[in-house]
Design a protein around this nucleic acid. Structure first.
Lengths: 157, 157
DNA sequence: GTGAGACTTCAAGCACGCTTGAGGTAAGCG
DNA sequence: CGCTTACCTCAAGCGTGCTTGAAGTCTCAC
């Protein structure tokens, strides 16, 4: 069962991708990777699957679901490395997504920073409590998503 | 059942927090929030719970589980706003976490950028395929997590 | 006092991403 | 050829974070 030819057994693929065999079978069931079968019914994977698996792992780090990863994967060749032209739009889409995530984290970070330093007292303007300013439109008068107890100066979280 | 006194019904808390009543009951079961009961057995929440809920939502955005959020919450007063001294360590821990996340995303972004522009050919050095350099230590000789087909120049994902 | 609507509990279900286990088969070294 | 090890399928289970539904109760405006 140790056949280092050009087709990998599921165990070999698992070892080289760092994923469990159960995960690989699951991915295959989802259509993320594919295999051929031996006469006896065992899976044999083309090395290109390693590429697809790396792609999937990267996709997960970007916060994509396996389903979304599969959709992106569908736009790339399944048995060969993609050309620059095929890869570029996918990479650009991911970069946008990453940028959005970074921006959101930076925003949250700034908000936390403000909260830490400030004595942070204006509950009605505290960004953390009132993330999207939704509270402001929520009823009459001043509205603080968090707190709701106006004159409580050293108040915050 | 519309009692805008100083105790909120679960429906009111849901409306103001943006969470479903089912989620609120679930959170209460997990100990993230607490309530008192009316004679008839209905929940009544102190406004301070809005604060805790905002905290939980922020925690989730930072990638914490509800359990972790609960642990952080346990270090803050449950019925009042925390003091700066109570809040500061929590905020700092979160900021570190956020910084880590941002750093990882930026790294991934750079890798993708490299892949896009490069023609990206050196499978053995491609960062995307070989995220943590784990492949390098994985056996004898050059080892590429993805690819495994060395002389395949315009090859990459 | 009554009726609508909000609330209660408890059990089950769902979606995601897998893992585990049972029971059995294939591959390949010696 | 035999033995060991890796593989196979299928069903069920798990952890997280909730939602849904059934069956019944409480509140409160009128």
């Amino acid at each position: 069962m140790t056949q280092s030819a050009d087709r990998l057994t599921i165990g070999e693929l698992a070892a080289r991708s760092g994923l469990a065999t159960s995960a690989l079978r699951y991915y295959e069931e989802l259509g993320l990777i594919s295999s051929e079968r031996t006469v006896g019914g065992q899976r044999r994977y083309h090395r290109a699957m390693l590429r697809r698996l790396a792609f999937v792992r990267a996709a997960q780090r970007v916060g994509l679901s396996l389903d979304e990863a599969g959709q992106a994967l569908a736009r790339l060749p399944d048995d060969r490395a993609p050309t620059a032209a095929q890869w570029a739009p996918v990479a650009r889409a991911w970069q946008r997504r990453i940028d959005d995530q970074i921006a959101e984290l930076q925003l949250l970070r700034r908000k936390l920073g403000g909260c830490v330093g400030c004595g942070c007292l204006s509950l009605k303007t505290c960004a953390l409590y009132n993330p999207d300013d939704t509270a402001a439109t929520h009823g009459p008068g001043a509205r603080w998503l968090l707190g709701d107890t106006p004159p409580e100066p050293p108040a915050h979280l």
